[in-house]
């Protein structure tokens, strides 16, 4: 286990490096010019050239890339072109909000999905099963940009229970995380149900039953544990979807997170800020997946990694 962990940690860096390289070249190759945005409508050609030179944007792309990497190695993400503040400070100010939103969404999804998925599998073709199917249908068919306003209209305007938008109290967190987590909950319900049904037919469950283990023990010890396998994989995958979804959810709920900052940085072609945002998003995605890989191993000791 320790050796495996060490290997995974070692591989973490090249992956991150690959992602950052991809971001760097993508954002620089996409049309758009940050200098135009910085200097405004009326700037003269020479002023633009001067600024481009000062920022090093006139250098060959390769030189800019090595500069970016050497800055990164020293822990320097550079300065935002448009916000005129250091990228690390801007990102640090926004990241907690996004983490809070995505983790709560994930938690909410798990809290909804496990009971519903288990009950659906236990009482197959019952009305609870159908209900859970209906719920996951809703979750899958409603894009964030539609579900969000609908939830606001129902819970904030009509019922008056929750605030419309913004960040602050626990109540502010409920609607955005429900919006963001709904699709994940929907997928998890179906996954859990299906995994449980698969496992129930396996021989060892039948054996366990035959051995006279109580039904509850069979479930908890064997069935759930094995169904967790596929769920754990899905959680890792879905975390990326949550991070991407936060871009739209944060815009709708006026959530001051990294997603909105990323969009803004992309629109103004604020290269260092885009790179900083992606660095943080990618790192947290990779960390969560590292964690799910470890959990995966814990849940299924049969897997051996490497020879």
């Amino acid at each position: 286990m320790n050796r495996y962990l060490a290997r995974r940690l070692l591989l973490f860096l090249p992956t991150l490096f690959g992602t950052l390289t991809l971001v760097f070249f993508l954002i620089h190759l996409v049309p758009g010019d940050p200098v135009e945005v910085m200097l405004g409508e009326t700037a003269s050609g020479t002023d633009k050239e001067t600024l481009r030179h000062e920022l090093g944007l006139d250098l060959p792309l390769w030189t800019q890339y090595t500069r970016f990497l050497s800055g990164l190695a020293l822990g320097d993400l550079g300065r935002s072109l448009y916000e005129q503040d250091s990228v690390s400070r801007l990102v640090r100010a926004r990241f907690p909000a996004t983490l809070e939103l995505t983790l709560t969404a994930m938690l909410l999804a798990l809290l909804i999905a496990f009971p519903l998925g288990i009950i659906a599998a236990l009482k197959r073709h019952s009305w609870t099963d159908r209900l859970s199917l209906l719920f996951s249908l809703l979750g899958l068919s409603m894009p964030n940009f539609w579900l969000g306003p609908l939830l606001i209209i129902v819970f904030s305007i009509e019922l008056g229970w929750l605030p419309v938008s913004g960040r602050g109290t626990l109540a502010h967190l409920i609607l955005p995380s429900a919006t963001l987590g709904m699709a994940m909950a929907a997928i998890l319900i179906r996954m859990i149900r299906s995994a449980l049904l698969d496992v129930l037919h396996e021989d060892y469950i039948q054996t366990a039953r035959a051995k006279g283990l109580s039904e509850q023990k069979v479930w908890l010890k064997h069935a759930l544990r094995n169904s967790l396998l596929s769920v754990v994989t899905i959680i890792g995958l879905q975390f990326g979807t949550l991070l991407a979804g936060s871009i739209i959810t944060e815009t709708i709920f006026t959530w001051p997170g990294l997603g909105r900052l990323t969009i803004q940085a992309i629109q103004t072609r604020d290269y260092p800020l885009v790179q900083g945002c992606i660095l943080v998003i990618a790192t947290s995605y990779l960390l969560v997946n590292l964690m799910t890989d470890i959990v995966y191993r814990l849940v299924d000791p049969r897997i051996t990694y490497g020879k």
Binding site: L103, T104, L107, L110, F114, Q216, W219
Partner: peptide, 26 residues
């Protein structure tokens, strides 16, 4: 079949880092 989901829920809670940084209320 009787099923008590409680122990399971606790596992869920432990498995996920709790969102720690709820800022002071607006």
């Amino acid at each position: 079949l009787k099923f008590r989901p409680r122990s399971f829920l606790i596992f869920c809670w432990l498995g996920i880092a709790l969102p720690g940084c709820l800022s002071s209320s607006q």
